[in-house]
Design a protein around this nucleic acid. Structure first.
Lengths: 156, 156
DNA sequence: CTTTTAGTGGAAAAATCTTTTGCTTGCAAG
DNA sequence: CTTGCAAGCAAAAGATTTTTCCACTAAAAG
């Protein structure tokens, strides 16, 4: 499952470009990587089919849409059963404020990033989370003061 | 600076759609939100000009391109001077493995997410980071075992 | 040595999508 | 009233994407 794809130099050049700006026309991409639009398009289509490219999305300015508050929530659970994990995953999937959830190794079991309009909304979220998920041993919330860097572009 | 934009119901519907799939044609978006392509296009262009939409990007499967390891690095600094902060920010901007960097309130000063191919690469990164940045009081690295959820779509 | 086949690229045509233009309507300020 | 936006629609114009078909190369097969 999920066999690796071996992008060559040109594939990587294409990916580097469209990871930063997916609005580039094929003609522009082609010129940049030294090809014509057709082979460029074939490479991109192939990478989409192979699942290397998982999607094209629009990014928003959180402040501008009134969602300027990001909170990191570190969770330690007291229950590591499969049933608990499943339930937790379901809750995470259900709550749209949770934009990221990682299972970690070490002292912290899960790390979430939660996006809300303000502190009051976070409180509402927090109550819902702790009400929905049983056996939370320790929950630590840290508020983001500043987004120093944030990119969706992987270091290719 | 960065005045807020007040998207109406239709704007929000458009944003919800293209946050998930920016490859949708105007005709599809228009049909979905109950408009024709032209006003749809005008709304999108306006939101781009206003800075609500900050970009269009392609997302990749990290595993497929051999960047399956994400590490969260929590940093506590011993120096809170403006000079240190500036230097730290410069280093963060320079290192492409750092895909996210947040300044937090509370015990942890900064939280980074670092993307690398494997543990060895993380070690290389870690040495470079600690060599480049002075006055790090405490650095805690936590490895991601599983990406339970990860979306670029804000909860509109 | 050929011959074949798979892989990669290119030019041009076809199909589709984006962007512009011009017109219409509704509504509110004067 | 009527003037002046603001928002939407349809159709035309302009680009871009996608297809089709062909050429070239290198490596495997005969």
């Amino acid at each position: 499952m999920s066999r690796k794809f071996e992008p060559d130099h040109t594939d990587r050049a294409i990916l580097r470009l469209i990871q930063k700006d997916a609005a580039l026309s094929l003609a522009d991409i082609a010129k940049e990587v030294g090809l014509t639009p057709t082979p460029c398009w074939k490479r991109i289509r192939k990478m989409e089919q192979e699942g290397v490219i998982t999607g094209r999305v629009v990014l928003l300015d959180p402040e501008k849409v009134g969602l300027g508050v990001s909170v990191f929530v570190a969770i330690e659970t007291g229950d590591h059963s499969a049933a608990w994990i499943e339930r937790f995953a379901a809750t995470v999937a259900k709550l749209p404020e949770i934009v990221e959830c990682w299972r970690l190794g070490g002292d912290v079991d899960y790390l979430l990033r939660v996006v809300v309009p303000d502190m009051a909304a976070f409180d509402t979220f927090y109550r819902r989370l702790t009400a929905d998920v049983p056996s939370l041993r320790k929950v630590t919330s840290r508020f983001a003061m500043e987004r120093v860097k944030s990119t969706t572009a992987l270091p290719l």
